[in-house]
């Protein structure tokens, strides 16, 4: 659509009622002029009217086609739908209330569920930016399957020496029980389960 046409139609959107009246007036005066001419040519008033309408073609079709080009039809239709919807809601307050309630419950439940999922699965470390670039590191024991925790000194070595990663964080610190000779000693914060670092 050419810009000029678009602007014209945009303007027409706000003059809908006036333009509609003008179109009706214009068609009416057209028919009257034709009727007058017909009568001047000797037709009876009834004949003249029928002939005028016949020559004009379908009045409603013309109006519809006119409306299609007059303004932005889809915007007009949306306005109409919204108005219609609001009217319906006003007529039926019980239904409106129920619908509102359903929407409220539905939306809050979905939001809550999403928040959990986001917190637990998608962004488990809220203070870390660019979580998609995070990787996890765990220790392994030669000859054994599975992963185990990284010791605190190893973690510190990684932090100090790695040039590949920006930063390391320990996601959990826990203690373990060490056996020293014949006694057992509780060492707090000696191990971290996992190291998270970020490039």
């Amino acid at each position: 659509m050419v810009l000029r046409t678009f602007l014209w139609r945009l303007r027409a959107l706000f003059l809908r009622r006036r333009l509609e009246d003008e179109l009706a007036d214009e068609i009416r005066s057209h028919l009257e002029m034709q009727i007058e001419d017909n009568q001047r040519r000797g037709m009876s008033p009834e004949e003249a009217r029928l002939d005028a309408v016949r020559q004009f073609g379908g009045i409603e079709q013309v109006k519809e086609e006119y409306r299609d080009h007059r303004s932005l039809r889809f915007v007009e239709t949306i306005f109409q739908d919204v108005r219609f919807g609001l009217r319906g809601l006003r007529h039926n307050p019980g239904f409106t209330l129920l619908a509102l309630l359903c929407l409220t419950v539905g939306i809050s439940a979905t939001t809550a569920a999403f928040s959990w999922i986001e917190g637990i699965l998608l962004k488990p470390y809220p203070a870390v930016a660019n979580q998609d670039r995070m990787v996890a590191v765990a220790g392994t024991t030669r000859g054994a399957s599975g992963f185990n925790a990284v010791s605190w000194p190893d973690f510190q070595d990684l932090q100090k020496n790695s040039t590949l990663m920006d930063w390391f964080i320990a996601d959990r610190l826990f203690g373990t029980t060490l056996s020293v000779g014949d006694r057992a000693e509780r060492a707090a914060g000696a191990l971290c389960r996992r190291i998270i670092f970020r490039r």
Partner: peptide, 23 residues
Amino acid sequence: LNQGTIYPALLKLEQMGWIRSKW
């Protein structure tokens, strides 16, 4: 010519800025 078809045509011409109308 279905005379009525002249009106949508006139509207389009006016929107293109090729004609103008006045009562």
